[in-house]
């Protein structure tokens, strides 16, 4: 999952990147509102964390602009402004949630998960079930037929991404956009290699043919 962090405080931004990356998120950092809008237009982010006081514009203006450009990514304000009227303003301009600083990372992660679930109209809890697969997104753990299946972070992210979009075709382009940063080569077979590895891991857990290849379009994680 790919998250955009629009935060001008380099210390907070850097720490967020480390903490989010540890939970399998790919993080893009920007320190101004205008660069943030630019990034949000170009990439399809699974969530956007937005500070309020930015050097060039205020966070609510950034949020308004993002919505005006028809960007549907969930926006979560991450700001020290804690007045009720600020929260109301933030939510009214199109933000999906509001977290005040100083924040506890567990809470922030939970709120990000909620927004991602809602965005993909996925399961209502932090557990995603796809047939015999159960993913605990809070703990970043995967169970196949109730047995823990350990996966490297990238494969975990790939499975989680396909699980939130279960029974729908996910294109290679989609996977690249959500799981790889801007330096990834879209023309390479990096996605196919990771899908092959994931299939192999799932087979070793007793699951075969749960990831189907849809010719010319992409891959699909099937619940049957």
């Amino acid at each position: 999952m790919k998250i955009l962090v629009i935060e001008d405080d380099p210390v907070i931004a850097g720490n967020l990147k480390i903490l989010l990356a540890d939970h399998g998120y790919l993080v893009d950092l920007t320190d101004t509102g205008s660069k943030g809008i630019e990034n949000a237009v170009v990439n399809d982010y699974d969530a956007i964390l937005l500070d309020w006081m930015l050097p060039d514009m205020e966070g609510n203006e950034v949020c308004k602009e993002i919505r005006a450009r028809d960007i549907k990514s969930p926006v979560i304000f991450l700001t020290a402004k804690n007045q009720v009227e600020d929260k109301v303003t933030g939510l009214d301009v199109g933000a999906d949630d509001y977290v005040t600083k100083p924040f506890v990372i567990e809470e922030l992660l939970a709120r990000i998960r909620v927004q991602i679930r809602r965005n993909y109209k996925s399961d209502l809890t932090s557990e995603i079930r796809v047939g015999a697969i159960m993913i605990d997104t809070a703990k970043c753990e995967i169970f196949v037929n109730d047995n823990l299946l350990e996966l490297p972070p990238k494969l975990y992210s790939l499975l989680e991404f396909m699980a939130v979009k279960k029974d729908t075709v996910v294109s290679r382009q989609d996977i690249i956009e959500h799981l790889w940063d801007e330096n990834a080569d879209v023309m390479s077979n990096v996605v196919d290699v990771h899908i092959k590895n994931l299939r192999r891991r799932l087979s070793s857990g007793g699951l075969k043919h749960v990831i189907k290849t849809v010719k010319g379009r992409g891959y699909m994680l099937c619940s049957d």
Binding site: V11, I12, N15, L16, A80, D86, P102, F103
Partner: peptide
Amino acid sequence: QRQFISNASHELKSPLARAVSRLEVIGL
């Protein structure tokens, strides 16, 4: 006065947020 308190709390929270997030990273 409210504006001042709000701004003041904002200014108090910024270094606090930096410290807390840094401690989270150390913990990790």
